[in-house]
């Protein structure tokens, strides 16, 4: 067997590619989660103008993670990224009680969009390290997650700046895809 055929064989078994969409309000921590997943330095993050994309290999999957800016002016562009999404990841700043309603409305809009029908939902209850943060269970109630019947969903408490909980969330993502 020559080197070429060996290479061809290696290429013939690629990981399955997944498209993950990372959404949420501005300052929720989407880019920090993205960089944590890619094992990159998170100490000099700037607000996302537009979007960031990174590919990470995890549990035999190649995860293409799209992190779209969360500021109000950018939100209308979110829908341009819905097509072929395998898992929707929604990031919430658990300590930002003032904008709890706003983040709930945005999430509701996503869940009622046709292009995201049946797409599994992972909610990261981020910034658990802050004293005023809501617990994952309280946040799930506040966002009305238990009433979701049309798709698998999960809420994961995390502190992205410390890397806590991020991996657990991704494990659920991979599991829910394998089940499909």
């Amino acid at each position: 067997m020559g080197l070429l055929s060996l290479l061809r064989k290696l290429r013939a078994a690629p990981e399955r590619e997944l498209r993950l969409l990372l959404l949420g309000l501005d300052n929720a921590g989407k880019t920090t989660i993205l960089k944590t997943l890619a094992s990159e330095d998170i100490n000099h993050i700037t607000p996302t103008a537009g979007f960031n994309i990174k590919s990470v290999i995890s549990e035999g999957f190649k995860l293409n993670v799209w992190d779209i800016g969360g500021q109000r002016k950018i939100r209308p562009y979110w829908k341009n990224y819905f097509e072929n999404t395998d898992v929707l990841i929604y990031v919430v700043d658990s300590s930002d009680k003032k904008r709890l309603e706003e983040t709930g409305i945005e999430l509701y809009e996503l869940l009622t969009d046709d292009k995201l029908q049946d797409v599994p939902l992972l909610v990261y209850a981020n910034k658990q390290d802050l004293p005023e943060a809501l617990t994952a269970a309280d946040l799930a109630q506040a966002l009305g997650l238990p009433s979701i019947k049309d798709r698998p969903w999960q809420i994961q408490a995390c502190t992205a700046v410390r890397g806590d909980g991020v991996r657990e969330g991704m494990e659920w993502v991979c599991k829910s895809i394998k089940k499909k």
Partner: peptide, 22 residues
């Protein structure tokens, strides 16, 4: 604040990793 290009109605969270330098 949004008129000069901050994300929301309080710029304080927009400086992030660039801190006061930004």
């Amino acid at each position: 604040w949004q008129y000069i290009g901050f994300q929301g109605d309080d710029p304080k969270t927009d400086f992030r990793g660039m801190g006061l330098l930004g």
